[in-house]
Amino acid sequence: MRYESPDTLEAAAKMLAAESGDARVLAGGTDLLVQIRSEILSPALVVDIKKIAETRTVSEEKGGFRIGAAVAGAELKEHAKLKKAWPGLVEAANLIGSTQVQGRCSLGGNLCNGSPAADSVPALIAAGAVASIVGPNGRRELKVEDVMLAPRKLALTKGEIIASFFLPARPAHASDAYLRFIPRTEMDIAVVGCAVSLVLDASGTCTAARVGLGAVAARPLLVEDAGKALVGTKVDEAALEKAAAAARAACKPIDDKRGTIEFRTDVAGVLTKRTALIALERARKA
């Protein structure tokens, strides 16, 4: 196995594209190294992207934020402005693993590992985040909900790297939240994950809403109908009930060791309501 750590995205993309065997990007390594150790993967080339400035920085851009794909969870938590604007995304990223894992795990890795249960992905989707992707043929943009296709399958082509995520500017009275269901209190994988991002007007009526769901289908979902159910309402019980029903309708889960179809569908609705209420509380104060 070869290890490279170039300092530009272009160089990294070139190396990945040129490798005829399996080539992998290394961010925090909390998925990749585990998979190499347990012999699930044995790449010929590993390209560490942490020496590349764009992947390691959080910066303000057009009133919003650009988050480097390899910024660690703990670093996101320490960014006061980001945390204020996107508390739900930051709390989702901070549910990943333990204190030790937090020092390494990244949003890019969480998304590109290709797990339908990844915690930060529904929050990125609800936030309307856009991935900036660099490949051997240049740069392109892709909405986060379009990056993952199926378990372990991404819309990235050979040599492509996610460099950063762009989060749009926040108007007043906007906020987000993330909740996951796990049987324990930590060190577990989401049985259902739900993120809600809301914008209210001055009267408290919801003007925009996005709902992201994790672990209930082959990939994390944007549930447009659930968002629509909230827009134009005061996010009252009836609207929440409608959003929950939409979330349940969007679920296409599997029965597995972590939960049954029936349970996952049910809890997706429960979490949609609970998450929306937290986002609502926050948006009112924002």
Binding site: P183, R184, E186, D188, D256, R258
Partner: peptide, 14 residues
């Protein structure tokens, strides 16, 4: 299917 502490869920401290 669950030969590890991730999915064989013994209680954690919290």
């Amino acid at each position: 299917q669950n030969a590890g502490f991730l999915d064989y869920r013994i209680p954690v401290a919290s």
